[in-house]
Amino acid sequence: MDLLQLRYFQAVARREHLSRAAEEMHVGQPSMSRTIARLERELGVPLFDRQGRQVRLNRFGSAFLKRVDRALVELDEARQELSDEAGLENGSVSVAAETLLTLTGPLSRFSAEYPEVSVRLRQADADAMVRQLADREVDLCVASQRLAGPSLRSVELLREEVLLAVPLAHPLAGRERVGIGDVTEEPFVTTRPGHWQRTLLERLFTGTGTKPKITCEGDETGAIQDLVSAGLGIGLIPVTARRAAAGGPVAWLHVDAPGCARVLTMVWREDAYLPMAARRFRDVAVSLLRSRRS
């Protein structure tokens, strides 16, 4: 068997569809089918149960896939190590984050220090980032909530207070502080489930006997302040947004509740080789963001 057969088998096993796997590997479906058939002949067992172009891994295929995944990961990491030894000229790093605005500072400094390295960014919620790390689609994740998964390691980048933003004409606008009991009947502007603001909001309401009343939810975290300013509700926003003086005018209140804070961490897989470019990006982000701690 050769490496190409293993790559094709892995693609078909993941897709469980010959045409889609062939498209992913940029080959014709007949060529993909012949390669898989030749591999099965060499192994002496069928790897799939077939129903037209739709295929399903059988018990032989499932067992073989585990070995193939490990072998190909070792080869890919070996290739990366050799590339690292040769220098950063051809290096790359892939990073996922809940909001890409968090990365503007580290990206600017990293690009200035390592202009030869290419950076690929993805926007994702916590669940998606865990999957991307598990599938080795990204090297690093920048998250504002804990990412749960095997062999994940993290370093804290930033810890900051989260404030409550209310419209300037709101009855609470003249106050300096509020408790959660003061806002249980208020409409909230927040993010969809999976994003850190929504997770924090729901956690703050735990024990109140009520759930937050959500009038607007979405993925654009940077729009929350403008929507609050427009009078659609109130919202939780980290203190850095207030310092940036961005967005519509709002009144800012401290929240008297334990843990009303954002903890920004960088996460990577401890059991996988981390390319030199990713390590350099991690070092730059840690150095820059830790210096800005509130």
Results as ranks from 00 to 15, higher is better:
Ile237Met: 15
Leu164Asp: 11
Pro106His: 08
Arg136Glu: 08
Ile224Leu: 13
Ala96Trp: 04
Glu113Tyr: 01
Ser108Gly: 15
Glu217Ser: 15
Thr99Gly: 14
Thr221Gly: 15
Thr265Pro: 00
Glu74Cys: 02
Pro171Glu: 11
Glu176Thr: 08
Pro238Cys: 13
Glu81Met: 15
Arg131Ile: 04
Ala148Lys: 05
Leu163Asp: 03
Ala63Thr: 05
Arg67Ile: 00
Val93His: 07
Arg243Trp: 11
Val155Arg: 10
Gly248Leu: 07
Leu133Val: 10
Pro30Val: 06
Leu75Ser: 04
Gln51Ala: 12
Leu39Cys: 00
Gly248Gln: 05
Val55Asp: 07
Leu65Ser: 11
Ala230Tyr: 08
Arg175His: 12
Ser83Asp: 13
Thr265Met: 05
Ala22Tyr: 13
Pro275Tyr: 04
Pro238Asp: 01
Leu274Val: 12
Ala165Lys: 01
Ala223His: 08
Ala143Ser: 15
Gly222Ala: 15
Val45Met: 01
Val130Gly: 08
Val68Tyr: 05
Arg175Phe: 08
Arg70Cys: 01
Val68Pro: 01
Ala245Gln: 15
Val155Thr: 08
Val142Phe: 14
Gly259Ala: 06
Val286Trp: 07
Ala251Ser: 15
Gly207Arg: 00
Arg175Val: 10
Leu82Thr: 11
His26Asp: 15
Pro150Met: 02
Arg15Met: 10
Asp139Pro: 03
Leu18Thr: 02
Phe188Ala: 11
Arg177Ser: 09
Gln132Trp: 12
Met32Thr: 09
Leu253Asp: 13
Gln197Cys: 05
Ser154Phe: 10
Arg243Glu: 13
Ser19Thr: 12
Gly209Cys: 04
Pro187Ile: 07
Trp252His: 05
Pro238Ser: 08
Ser229Val: 06
Arg109Met: 05
Pro167Phe: 00
Val73Lys: 13
Ala173Thr: 04
Val183Arg: 02
Glu202Ser: 10
